[in-house]
Structures are given as C-alpha cells and as structure tokens.
Design a protein around this nucleic acid. Sequence first.
DNA 1: CTGAAAGCGCTTACAG
DNA 2: CTGAAAGCGCTTACAG
Lengths: 339, 339
Amino acid sequence: MTRRPRIRDVAELAGVAPSTVSVVLNDTAGARVAGSTRDRVRAAAAELGYVPNSFARGLRTQRSGTLAFIGDVIATTPYAGDLIQGAQEAAWEAGYLLILVNTGGDPELEERAVQALRRQQVEGALYATMYHRAVTLPEVLDGLPTVLLDARPVSGPATFVVPDEQTGAEDAVEELAGQGHRRIAFVRDLNDGPAVDRRQRGYEARLAAHGLELDERLVVRERSDSAGGERAAAVLLDAPDPPTAVFAFNDQMAIGVYRAAAARGVRIPQDLSVIGFDDLYVVSSELTPGLTTMALPHREMGRLAARALIAELDGGEPAGEHLVPCPVVRRGSVAPPRP
Amino acid sequence: MTRRPRIRDVAELAGVAPSTVSVVLNDTAGARVAGSTRDRVRAAAAELGYVPNSFARGLRTQRSGTLAFIGDVIATTPYAGDLIQGAQEAAWEAGYLLILVNTGGDPELEERAVQALRRQQVEGALYATMYHRAVTLPEVLDGLPTVLLDARPVSGPATFVVPDEQTGAEDAVEELAGQGHRRIAFVRDLNDGPAVDRRQRGYEARLAAHGLELDERLVVRERSDSAGGERAAAVLLDAPDPPTAVFAFNDQMAIGVYRAAAARGVRIPQDLSVIGFDDLYVVSSELTPGLTTMALPHREMGRLAARALIAELDGGEPAGEHLVPCPVVRRGSVAPPRP
DNA sequence: CTGAAAGCGCTTACAG
DNA sequence: CTGAAAGCGCTTACAG
C-alpha cells in the first residue's frame, strides 16, 4: 500500500503551486486560472488518484461534511432500516456522510457517544426514536443543530419530523365509513402516547364528520400486540351489537382481530372489515386476506429530517413540526357492510 | 454558541504547555508528569468542557477512528438493522465510529461513496449485502482493509463473515429426524446460491446420517416467497406418498406451506411438521402454531465482522472465513409423526 | 518533570 | 493569472 498522494504531489506533477491545485479542484469561486492550467491540474490529480484529505480540509474550513444519526434502538424494529436509509440518502445527496450511533436508550452511553461525535466534528445531528414518542433532548446536544426524527419534544421548541397520525387515522376511518360502515370500533393501546392519542383524535373527528355518534363501548384498550388485539376483538365480537368494522391501532393488533374473527367464523371482509396502521409489510401482506392499512412513511421521514437539518446548517430558520402523510395501502380487508 | 475550547485554552487555564495537556489527556505511555499537574489539567479540561478535535489529531496521527459500513440495500430487508447494530456496537466498544453508506447496489454510486469515505480517512470497511451471496469487491476498495459481511468473495482470498448455512440446515433436519420423521421434504428456491446450496447440502448430509435415502421427489424448487412455498407444498401434499415433515428454505416459503396445509385440512404439527429458516420474527411468531425455525444471527455477524476488521487494523492476520452458527428457535410447528 | 518547535495536509487571504 | 505564507488544532520527538 503506497502512500496516498498529497496536494503537493499533484502540484509538482502539474508544475503549479499547491494553492492552485486547491483552487482548481474546489472550483473556488472568483479564482482566475487559465483553462490549460486547469486541465493540467485535473489530469495530474486523476493520474495520481488524488483524494483530498478531509481532516486537513476540515481543520482549515471548520466543516466536516458529516452528520450524526443517533438512534435509541436500531435493531428491534423492522422500520429502523428505512429511517436510516432515508436519512442517509438525503445526506448523501447534499454531500454529507452519516455517522451512525446506537445508544440503546442508555443516557450514559448517549453522552459519550455525543462527545465522540463532537470530536468528529459532526455539523449536526438527527435524534431518532424507533417509534413516535415524546423525548427530552440530552443536554450534551446543546449547541449542536439537531432535528428530532419520529419523536417530538416533551417541551420547548425544536425541529421534528413525525407521521401525521391524526390525518392517517381520519383517512383510515374514511376507508370504512366511506363504504357505509356505521359501527366502527377502535382497538387501541392501553397507554396514552403521541401516536395513539392522535389516532384516536382522528378516529373521533372522522366519525363526527360522518354524523356518527361516539360509542364508548366500541373503543377497547388492550396491549398493542396480537394477543391484545385478539382479546379486544373478542370483547367486541361477543357483544350484543358488534361492530361491522374495526380500526386497529397497529397491524399487530389487527392480526389479533383476524384471529378472533376466525375463531368465531366471522369472515373478513364479508362479515367484518378491518383496517390497520403501520404497514408492517411482512405481516400485512401475508395475512389472508391481505390487510388494508396506513403506511408509516419511515423512509420519507428520514429524508425529510436530514433535509431539514441541512437547511438549518445552511442558515435556514428552524422549521418546527413536520408532519408526514401516512398513505393508505389497500389490500383486501375492507368491504361494504352486509345489508 | 461560543467557540469550542482548544487545547491551548486548557493549557492556559492549567498553567502548562499544550503538549503537557495532550500528554495528560491521552495518558501517553512513558510520559512523566507530576500527579498534581495531571489533576490541574484534567480539572481545567472538565471546566471548559474540552473535547479534542479529531481532525487535528487525525491529521497528526494518521488515524481517524472511523470505520465504513457499505451496504447494498439497507431498507428492503428487516434484517439490515441487526447487521448494522451489531457492527456499530462492536466498533463502538473498540473506540471506533461507524460511517454508513447505502449504495443501492449502484456501482457508480458505490465508487463515489468509497471515495468520500477515503476522504474521511476511514481506516477500514465492512462491505455488507443484505442476504448471503457471492460478490466481487469493487476496485476502489483496493488498499483499504475490508471485511465482507453476509457475503462471500466470488474468488480470491478475503475475510468474510457468513451464516453457517450447512450446519443450520443439518440441525433443522435433525429437529425433524430426531422426532422420528423419515419422509422429510425440502422446499427450496428455484435458483442456486450460497445459502440454498449449503442448506441443501446440510439437508442431504443429515438425511444420510440417519440412514435415510434421498428421494428426489421430496425436493421441490419454487420461488422463495409464500406463494412459491404454497405451490411446492401443494405438490408434496397431493402426492401419493406425502412427506410427514417439511424443511422450508426460508420462513416465507414456510408460510406457504402452512397455507397449503390449511387448505387441505392437514394440521400442523399433528399431521405435518414444518421447520423454516431465517426467523423472520414478525412472521414466525405470529403464525399459528408458531413456526419453529433456524435463526439467522445478523447481529452476531455484524459484531464479528467489525471485530475481525479491527483485529486486522491492529496488525492481525486476515482470518478468511468466519461461519456463524444459526440456532434453532423452537415454537410449535414440529411434533413426532403420527404412528 | 515540562516546554518550544515542527509538522500533519489542506485553504485562503494576500502579494506580485 | 499564479505562488508564498500563514494557520486550522493537535501530537511527538527533542531539548532542557
């Protein structure tokens, strides 16, 4: 492995000064260099396979060309890859490289990670959580431009990118009410949270828009996994006046609704329409019938967050809240109610 | 945002020379500095919140403390996150930061990405594919220490980390044969490839170890998705002498086996045992009964690859092939054959 | 036991 | 139109 060529090597080969090489290779604005000189410099650089050293440049320019992606838990959700990929793509398009750190949610590790990132002179950070929740930015991040990704600030101003949960939920209910359903249940998580709260708000808003009264018995709280969805659906289906459609907080719960229906001979979508949320691909596409659901736009959120961060670095104003639409993915679990 | 403190600021506050600060903060071996001086330096650094500038250090030491993770497609597989997380963790533990680049499999983008990474002075690279396949390392990577992750070289020597497909397949067949099954089918991908070839080899080896003859009619090639698995299982179950157990090339195909069985009133596991491969979590755990399958150790592979790379950077010999075991995850789809 | 000096590889005013 | 010089913030022989 021979030594990497330096700017001086290029300069010597081209017969110019290093500063001229710099000016040519960076297309420095306002610099007047003869075309023939430019050609010679470029040829020399190509011949040597010259790649500038970002450290030297960064030391001088005080810019690193890197952004941090700080995530709490990368692996445990199948969406993480999309969030990361979206951010990486947008960063790349703007000439930035992404440095990835996974903190596992450990504050002490997080602090050391941010310090390491500062040492690397990252210009800004994406602070991502793997599902939509409210967070408090760690103090170490003070002074570093930061955008929250799939997270919202517990308090105070911040730029953040989250799914438009409420509109998504409204659209989900519209898929059902638009087909004529009047008794539409909402199977939701036990606990409150930014996602479930807004989905419920959307559910209620859309019912109201259709002139449907909110029946508290049609809103069932359970754990947001398939077993919870199954229990919730059991309660609904065994009631005297069961719903004709179910809006499930997430796809996992929708799986449970499928199971409860199957156990009772209730057919989907003939006897019961079901719509989910998240578009957990491997699940929603493999159910029979395929699950109609609202997609969580992770890749798009990643892209948007990176772009928002870069815009701030370029001197733009912090943008506050970015809501990203959740499009419906129609498969086969919704049909008109039986007459 | 005030200016970040430099080593000179710490030196002035502590009343020493910058070089002394460097020596103290880096615990430079063989340097003799009085304990009281050390304390003063450390206190000054803490007071100012001093974080050394990696660029300046790297320029001097010719080390960056960063590694590259170059992936072809990050998002499209739910495993990618694990691969990345494992690599990131192991890198972090050794004091390295991971820079992530997603090439989408585009050679031109790949070349530019590697150049950008070289500019950033990465010390080595992890070249990852999102499923086990054979690749040719791009030329731009020449001279940069590289470890293949979930990929093997088409030819030539290289350090690479892949799942131990054959042993995994042997263990899968053992789960079935060990329960007394004699007619064990293998539902496999249409095309050859490093993964399927080795899984078939394992299947055949384990059959032989149990004194079972290979019945070519029990090996069915289909597309490796659920529809393909369903077609393959249909052929097997409708045959005059159907198998009592199916080893599916992957979990997606196993889903299809479930469907074909259900359509025929064949119960799993009472009438038919099924074992998959991959442990596509959301799928395998949500089927009824839960799918017994061989887990692909992505996180472990990521960790191992990063460690192998770092070992090489530390002067170790390139290690060649690393096979990572695929443990069985028992759920409920395997039982003894009916007497 | 501690400090002064050189130098890593660039970029950018500035001089000519 | 091009080159010489300074300096970004560190580390590391070396001198004392």
